[in-house]
């Protein structure tokens, strides 16, 4: 990667905004880690953007956005600073910070299914592991995954359009709240009735994501997830999942799939030879609000 390429494609900004594809991000890291020009630019731009965001948030009205428990704790720790007289345009855009942070998070959830970050992370330590063969079943799951991704992407774009509309309407608070539920695993032997995770979702059809953190990085080809209802009936099944950069899996759903009640999500790691191991069970309760 050379500097002409980096400049022309705004690689520094896109890296900092988290907009680079995982493989390109890794290539850029491999370049800048040994390039003081690029690290200088990255540090300065990052500090400048942080400053801009802080100024914007100082002028933001009290946010009413619900950030789901347990995820991105550092986002929750921001405190409002004392307000000073300031630039009017920032007041409007302060709302946009919150809106776009939410959108970006949703986008990350969609991107993660395509993510090859686990491959990159292991790339240098395990050196050229044999590529796994792609069979018909895998292709089928890929198609299913693509369908889900497209659905989620469409929802994100819809949210994004709404977000931009809100951005220039100073009378409105941000309304967008892409639902992302971070599930905590059930303790050994716990039944699904002892749900530690409560998913409060609107009764009207709504898209939301469920994420689960993987406890450790295994050498799995990919992961599959199954959701059973309280009578053990199959509600949903998906495969071909890859962990995102936070070593978490996520899947997008529509609320119409669920009724009020208890569910059990099982995560399995699928090895190169097709053998699957159960990695975690996550009980959760769906509560629909009117």
């Amino acid at each position: 990667m050379d500097h002409k390429y980096i400049d022309e494609l705004d690689i520094v900004d896109r890296y900092l905004m988290g907009k680079l594809p995982v493989d390109e991000s890794a290539r850029f890291e491999e370049h800048f880690v040994d390039c003081s020009d690029c690290t200088d630019r990255l540090e300065t731009t990052k500090a400048f953007v942080e400053g801009l965001r802080l100024v914007a948030s100082e002028r933001a009205p009290e946010a009413r956005i619900n950030i789901p428990k347990g995820r991105f704790w550092y986002l929750r720790s921001r405190k409002a600073f004392a307000l000073a007289a300031g630039v009017l345009s920032l007041v409007v855009l302060a709302s946009a910070v919150l809106v776009f942070n939410q959108i970006r998070r949703s986008r990350a959830e969609a991107d993660q299914a395509r993510s090859v970050s686990a491959q990159w992370e292991r790339r240098y330590e395990e050196e050229h592991q044999a590529a796994s063969s792609v069979d018909a079943k895998h292709q089928e799951t890929e198609r299913e995954l693509t369908r889900q991704l497209n659905q989620l992407q469409a929802e994100i774009e819809k949210q994004e359009r709404t977000g931009i509309a809100h951005q220039y309407d100073g009378s409105k608070q941000p309304q967008i709240n892409p639902l992302i539920f971070d599930l905590v695993s059930a303790r050994g032997g716990e039944s699904s009735s002892a749900s530690t995770n409560e998913l409060i979702i609107p009764r009207s059809p709504t898209s939301f994501s469920i994420t689960v953190a993987l406890e450790e990085e295994g050498s799995y080809k990919d992961y599959r997830m199954t959701i059973l209802g309280d009578h053990g009936q199959l509600i949903w099944k998906g495969s071909g999942f890859k962990p995102n950069r936070y070593n978490a899996l996520s899947a997008g759903f529509n609320s119409t799939l669920f009724r009020d009640g208890d569910y059990l999500l099982t995560v399995e790691g699928v090895a190169g030879d097709g053998n699957a191991s159960v990695l975690g069970k996550y009980s959760f309760r769906v509560v629909k609000t009117p």
Binding site: D13, L52, R53, L90, V97, F100, I164, Q167
Partner: peptide, 12 residues
Amino acid sequence: DRDLLNRYYIAE
């Protein structure tokens, strides 16, 4: 210019 900075870095 203020608008540009905000649109690019804040609203992305």
